[in-house]
Design a protein around this nucleic acid. Structure first.
Lengths: 220, 220
DNA sequence: AATAATTTTTAGATTTACCTAAAAATAAAA
DNA sequence: TTTTATTTTTAGGTAAATCTAAAAATTATT
């Protein structure tokens, strides 16, 4: 059994490990809003418990057990987000902090029943895949909108930025999950992208385009 | 803002205060499964925060603020219990421990939306009243089944014992909330009570009868 | 390769919630 | 009203998760 804090460390390490093989102390500290010295203390503890592999000065990687634990927390987080949006009518930019608390509720029965109640959803309100109860989930094939060429089209199926400001901005532009888009122009000057959505033309900055994930319908 | 532990102390004091005016250190310790010395530490802290009035050796009482905080936790606990039973199909004897965790989730918005989602229920699965968002709730007029005389009838509207063993026992006997009952006999020997429920005769011990709460239809 | 910069760890403290054991206050019994 | 029993508090200590400041290891730069 892990403490609330240990669970948060594991989850953070899991997410950081999606980008780098060895997760570094400073990266964890930044993500957890804490100091590197505190991280060192904690990773020693997690290593002792067999949840991570740790070589001094070399960063950490999750063990099989650690990874499973982390995936279970991610599963809970995403299911709760679906609950908040689908059942309690929260907006997609309002759910993160509450789910951050709910994900630590321990009952396995609760999560299985919640999953069933929600109709076994495959993705959360931001398009992130929800692991099943065995920790398995489809490795979704996303392309960043920024990588599309003029003329390419596809469906918005995710975002790689969960900040409220970003999500509200997308909402205002009508760029929500499931929307069909086509790239009509890319501006040389600032790299901003002109896209067609629901019969409207919208212009989005390069920065925004980087964080919109598209499931491609192929080129044309 | 209170810690998880502070909230649990306030809730415990609130419940104990339903029976005695001044809540004693030992009573809190027993309820919280901790030691009197630890309770003394905590009540000093809660007193400093203005949540309880505390005179050394004389026990404690909740201040207005403390009471409001406690009622808010009770509200959350009971709403979550309704959710678990009504939406996730938990049985009434399975919800307590999970609700014990869920009650500490901090978002006010969450609880208001949950309340609405559940249809603003007035009572939890054990018949306990749910305070509204202003902390107000009807002081329900219950009579203990044990106090009924032969011939008296009424409706089961609550229980004063939430242990799984007790609730499972009631379930087996068909004694669930909303059931209409009539007392047909009281045994002199052991004080056990013979009651009529759904055209069946069931015999319940004095101990069980003490913890079933009846809203009376008057005598006859 | 030597020096500088960065990253990580150690050492020693702090806070929260708990503990045990002993002392003090209050309540009950002789 | 003493004595005894019970309740409560104090004193001092522990474990978890944090911190600051300084030391050590690693990486980058000249």
């Amino acid at each position: 059994m892990q403490s609330y804090t240990e669970e948060n460390y594991l989850k953070t390490i899991y997410h950081l490990a999606e980008k780098t093989i060895n997760v570094q102390t400073n990266a964890i500290a930044e993500q957890m809003q804490t100091k590197p010295a505190s991280v060192t203390d904690m990773i020693k503890k997690l290593a002792d418990k067999g949840l991570i592999d740790y070589i001094k000065y070399q960063g950490v990687t999750l063990t099989e057990t650690g990874k499973n634990t982390a995936i279970d927390i991610v599963r809970k987080h995403r299911l709760w987000e679906v609950f908040l949006v689908d059942k309690l009518n929260f907006k997609w930019d309002e759910v993160h902090d509450v789910a951050e608390e709910l994900e630590h509720i321990k009952s396995i029965e609760l999560i299985e029943r919640l999953d069933e109640f929600l109709g076994f959803p495959k993705a959360d309100p931001h398009g992130d895949p929800i692991p099943d109860k065995n920790g398995r989930f489809a490795k979704t094939q996303f392309i960043k909108l920024i990588e599309l060429k003029v003329g390419d089209s596809g469906t918005i199926t995710g975002v790689s930025q969960h900040s409220s400001a970003f999500l509200k901005h997308l909402e205002k532009l009508g760029l929500t999950l499931g929307k069909q888009i086509q790239v009509s122009d890319v501006t040389d000057f600032d790299g901003s992208v002109e896209i067609q959505v629901s019969d409207k033309q919208v212009n989005i900055s390069r920065e925004v385009a980087k964080h919109i994930l598209i499931s491609s319908n192929g080129k044309n």
